[in-house]
Design a protein around this nucleic acid. Structure first.
Length: 271
DNA sequence: ACAGTAACCTGTTTGC
DNA sequence: TGCAAACAGGTTACTG
């Protein structure tokens, strides 16, 4: 589920329903996620209020007067609003507000996390080393080009490195490389400035498109049926191995790079 | 400093 | 059909 566009869609979806509402209760049914949910979470949040909901990379930051709830959705996490609170198997956390609205965290694989910090979340161990935001101006062709000069890794692993740029996951890395006509296996230091211009541009375009698509698919965030859209109609290569390239009809090829599947067009994205 | 791999989990798909 | 293996949108920690 959660790549950056899904996280952003979640942020926009939950924010209007939860800010400025007093938190009545916090129920933690399963604290064993990627990192254990701190035992203090409930007491920190109770009678408190979320003032704003921000995002840093794929982390959601729910700010209160006294600290910030940091949420990462991992591979299978989601946040949903519900009124009727009959929890299912993987509904690990409920945050219940005074008006009986319930913000529910669901995560079958439990790779996500809910953490608390009383300081600025940007100084938190998990966030302090994050790279630039891909949708901000600081993620520029020259930024990536300069970093790439002394790297010997592939271009795909460069753009998926969260210490360099925060929040480009496997789907959008594949899609952006296809759009920019760059081979995923190409050594980062061997791309020229023009290729970095194209790549950063396409990363931004694709993420923005996906956020738009998520926003329209996910109209009714409070409904049980409202499932986040995965931008799937607009994908060109991800999950399409052995199908014809949408640009040149060459059969798309899949390989494995650092345990993740890479799909690309050997014709349009030559080494 | 860097690159590659294992690890954290469960549900679904694939292959024999 | 049944069962086991492989695989899945992420990220850190460890190894060499």
């Amino acid at each position: 589920m959660p790549e950056l566009p899904e996280v952003e869609t979640t942020r926009r979806g939950i924010m209007p329903h939860i800010v400025q509402k007093k938190i009545k209760d916090v129920i933690v049914r399963q604290p064993q996620l990627r990192w254990p949910i701190p035992q203090s979470l409930s007491s920190q949040l109770k009678d408190n209020c979320f003032l704003s909901v921000n995002r840093r990379g794929k982390y959601l930051l729910l700010n209160t007067d006294s600290g910030t709830l940091i949420i990462h959705l991992g591979m299978s996490g989601s946040l949903r609003l519900c009124k009727t609170c009959s929890p299912k198997k993987h509904d690990h956390v409920d945050i219940i507000f005074n008006d009986d609205t319930c913000l529910r965290y669901t995560d079958p694989r439990r790779f996500g996390s809910l953490l608390w910090t009383s300081n600025s979340p940007h100084n938190h161990q998990l966030l302090e080393h994050l790279g630039v935001e891909p949708l901000q101006y600081s993620f520029s062709p020259s930024y990536l080009y300069n970093i790439s000069r002394q790297k010997r890794c592939s271009i795909k692993s460069l753009i998926m490195n969260s210490q360099i740029v925060a929040g480009v996951g496997n789907i959008y890395a594949n899609e952006a490389l296809f759009a920019a006509k760059i081979a995923p296996t190409k050594e980062a230091s061997r791309l020229n400035q023009e290729q970095y211009r194209s790549l950063t541009r396409h990363i931004k375009i694709i993420l923005q498109k996906a956020i738009k698509a998520g926003g329209t698919t996910l109209k009714d965030f409070t409904s049980v049926n409202g499932k986040p859209g995965y931008f799937s109609q607009q994908l060109h290569v991800y999950g399409k191995e052995n199908q014809p390239c949408p640009r040149c009809s060459t059969t798309l090829k899949s390989i494995k790079q650092h345990q993740r599947k890479t799909t690309y067009c050997p014709q349009c994205q030559p080494e």
